[in-house]
Amino acid sequence: MENRFDDQKILDYLDGVLEEGEKRLFENELENNSDLQERLDLLLFTINAIKLKGYKHTIRQVQQDFIQEKLENKKFTPFATPKLERKKIPLLFWGKVAAAVSLLVLFGFIFYLLRTDGPSLYEGKYISYEIATERGFSEQENHLEPLFLQGEFRQMFQAIAARDAEQLSAKELLLLGNAALELDSATASLTYLRKLDENNKNSGTDSFQDEADFFLALTYLKLKDYQAAYQLVDKIRSDERHKYRGNFSGLDQLSIRIRTLF
């Protein structure tokens, strides 16, 4: 069958710029003209290929950035120190060397403390939250728990999408905060863990307070909010009965303290 419509018209139809009357005519023709339908399919296929080309470029860029970030989180570049030459030198010189070495050690120590920035401390200290078996959870909590245990973190946010943040229980807030950390979104985690902390303060309760302190501290570290992280680490380490007391060392605390000075 012969086509009354050329490629320009077909493209106008696909681009949505045909006038209403012309569009109706075109669609009527399309119903009865298999050649026209075939041509339209081919042009549509070509357009989709162009779109896919754009997607391909986007995917490549995002993947490159993602892998780069992933590598940077793992990477550690050792610090190379030059070798000293062996010479016969007076005692005074050795005194100077000793002073220099002491300085070097001091700088090395400071360098070590500075090297461990928030995100790297986070990587070193992060542990996945383990759900303790307790009785009396509400239906909703029972709904989030299996998702958390199965690692369906994204689905957890879908499950609570229609609910007001005020309605979320302490356990739900804790699970959501941890799910966000598992998904590498410290900003989202902050919202839920802060809410849990605030709720406890406002109601005078301490539901999952130790967990909130620990995971909030980690979240702040990930976000490089050293002041906030330091306060929590200090709180955790000062409390002898805190569940997570052993998870931060004095050196970690000092390292964070130094970061707060910059």
């Binding site: 997607y55 986007t58 860029q61 995002v62 973190f153 994204r154 689905q155 946010f157 879908q158 999408a161 799910a179 966000a180 998904l183 979104s185 410290a186 900003t187 989202a188 919202t191």
Partner: peptide
């Protein structure tokens, strides 16, 4: 951008060609 998107949000943004990246 800091929030975790739901499946629906991801699908909406892609099909709406809004924030594909």
């Amino acid at each position: 951008k800091g929030k975790v998107w739901t499946d629906q949000e991801i699908l909406d943004e892609i099909s709406g060609a809004n924030q594909i990246n």
